[in-house]
Nucleic acid binder design. Structure first.
Lengths: 345, 345
DNA sequence: TCGTCAAATGTAAAGGTTTACATTGACGGT
DNA sequence: ACCGTCAATGTAAACCTTTACATTTGACGA
């Protein structure tokens, strides 16, 4: 039975003694085929072990059953769980997921554009926050597209993310509830939209607590470990220290914690620290990090569901949808009441 | 110029005033085409923005330009760098990489088998250490396949990994050089081949140092964080403590370190710990972990190169090749000379 | 009895590419 | 002047599927 070359629809048709059209119908629109015929076809399929040749199918249909996911870096700890959500949802609808990473090189982006142009993907999911393909002109016939995490910079593309402001608000509220009054924010609120929104949550929380804008410390940091450490050093130079550091993400928080420990301070005894994202490392840091958890799998699921909906509707784009999920506070051991030094003031 | 539907080879042929066969040849076998013609075709391609329709090409050729990579878990910290190696190498040869994860559910494996049978992948890279598809029978017409990290259990499939024994030997030699005589090994050397080989390196090192087999402590542990902590607890119960823990991987080492810190011990003051893998976390643990680095990108590169070679040679399988790369010792802060308590004995 | 209609099935084209085979034309050797 | 050779190019088939359209069949109402 196990021929060298895989069975085609014709093999099935011959065995079932019907035409290939009937076989195709029995598979895709069974209600259009007599029950007895359906049975014969099913048996023939079982005998031959037939599977549809995806290439031929995609060619005929003019679209593939693959979704391309482009991320700047696969190693990003935020990525893998999102991917699980994306993939499960896609698979449930008969689609497969293809992963690409640009490593922040524009050259790579172009290769993916070529890939898309050769019809190999029916849809696109972007993690990059920006269309990685040079001119908008080239994107003229891009397939349906959904952004994840961050809105996509240069195109009216729907996206699924987290309510950054609400999440940040939970972190700052916790710090305030513990008694902190002087709280520093570290992040790049000028160029990164997600950071900007988290900053907004920070401000809103301090406003609500009646802490004047004058007393706030906002430091620049691009979200890397190094940026956290650097911001901390600058604060020590200035001798303008807060009692708590609200970091725009966990990486930054890690940088701050490394810096504080290097200077011999205790966390959370001397300073409190919060992050954002809840990357896997967060629970293994010493102390374990209090942070805001991204509902990663859920984000992935929603994003893919949205994309698949666009695919079947044919509503290619222009729907500037924005789906924001609610993130949760994860309380661990990096936050405590401010040290006496602060209570004194 | 930017039509609604993508340009086909016929559009190019019309503009270049040649036949489609010539266009195809100009692209794939330029030496068979007159220079002047080649020029016309190149221009026409530039004008139309033509890209080969991958579906049609794959259909005609009977094979795709995609490689399927199956891993048990994409979130595995070992995975992402390997993937970069795999992907770069594939792309350099005109192949794309498709990623699947089985989450250790056999059901998922079957779906990938279906995927392969529908001709959607030209080759297969396995991280699982086992063919994730039930019966060997079904694998009869599997595409060329290469294992990564671990030899694939049920099939004569070549694999690319690391010289576990040599790596483990480096770790144990370091511990011995620091003066440790009583060194525990924690790992699952019975069912996991990689663990078993690391264990062999451990034994070889102790043999070379003239430490009798009787004085060795070997604990079971499946490689999870929890398994490390558990093994540690058992040693404390038995009151049979080593001065150093040589862990089969970094996760186990992390478990041991968490357990030791919970009991108030200092690392490396009271106990030394080594890992294996050098996962990204390793440098952020406190203390940072001395471990054996897997040359991940290199492994990925080699594995893909081997697969592509098999693809072009047509030597489908049966070549039970085993390519082992040399891992390096990464010295950080979790190892020191044994405490006085030990020196006394 | 026949015409009409609907359900079930078949026929054939189309989708874009690669390539075996056929054709053309130029050129060198006799 | 003719033939053989070879390089360059063209023609058409094949890869496998889906589906519009055509055909067959049988039921049913007039």
């Amino acid at each position: 039975m196990s021929n060298s070359s895989p069975a085609t629809i014709e093999d099935v048709a011959r065995i079932a003694e019907v035409s290939i059209a009937t076989v195709s119908r029995a598979i895709h629109t069974p209600e259009k085929v007599a029950k007895s015929t359906r049975l014969k076809v099913d048996q023939a399929i079982a005998i031959t072990g037939y599977t549809t040749n995806a290439m031929a199918r995609s060619l005929r249909l003019g679209r593939s059953n693959m979704i391309l996911v482009v991320a700047p870096d696969i190693g990003d700890p935020n990525f893998s769980n999102i991917l699980i959500g994306l993939e499960n949802e896609a698979r449930a609808h008969g689609y497969g997921v293809l992963i690409g990473h640009t490593q922040n090189e524009p050259q790579r982006g172009l290769e993916y554009l070529k890939f898309l142009n050769s019809n190999q993907a029916a849809g696109l999911i972007l993690f990059t926050g920006i269309l990685p393909f040079g001119h908008r002109a080239m994107t003229a016939r891009l397939p349906p597209c959904v952004g994840v995490f961050e809105p996509v910079f240069n195109g009216g593309i729907p996206y699924v993310g987290v309510d950054d402001a609400a999440g940040a608000r939970k972190a700052v509220d916790l710090l305030i509830a513990e008694g902190h009054r002087k709280i520093a924010f570290i992040g790049d609120s000028r160029t990164k939209l997600a950071h900007n929104r988290r900053r907004a949550g920070y401000d809103a929380g301090l406003d609500a607590a009646g802490i004047p804008a004058a007393g706030r410390i906002v430091m620049e940091g691009d979200g890397t470990i190094e940026s956290g450490r650097l911001a901390l050093e600058q604060l020590f130079m200035r001798d303008d220290l807060p009692s708590a550091f609200m970091c725009v993400n966990d990486q930054t928080a890690l940088g701050v914690m490394i810096g504080l420990k290097a200077r011999g301070y205790d966390i959370p005894g001397d300073f409190s620290v919060t992050g954002f994202d809840d990357i896997p490392q967060a629970s293994f840091m010493t102390p374990s990090l209090t942070t805001i958890r991204q509902p990663r799998t859920a984000i992935g699921k929603r994003a893919m569901a949205l994309l698949l909906e666009m695919l079947s509707d044919g509503t290619s784009a222009e729907t500037e949808t924005e789906i924001l999920l609610r993130p949760d506070l994860v309380v661990r051991n990096s936050v405590a009441a401010p040290s006496r030094q602060w209570a004194a003031r």
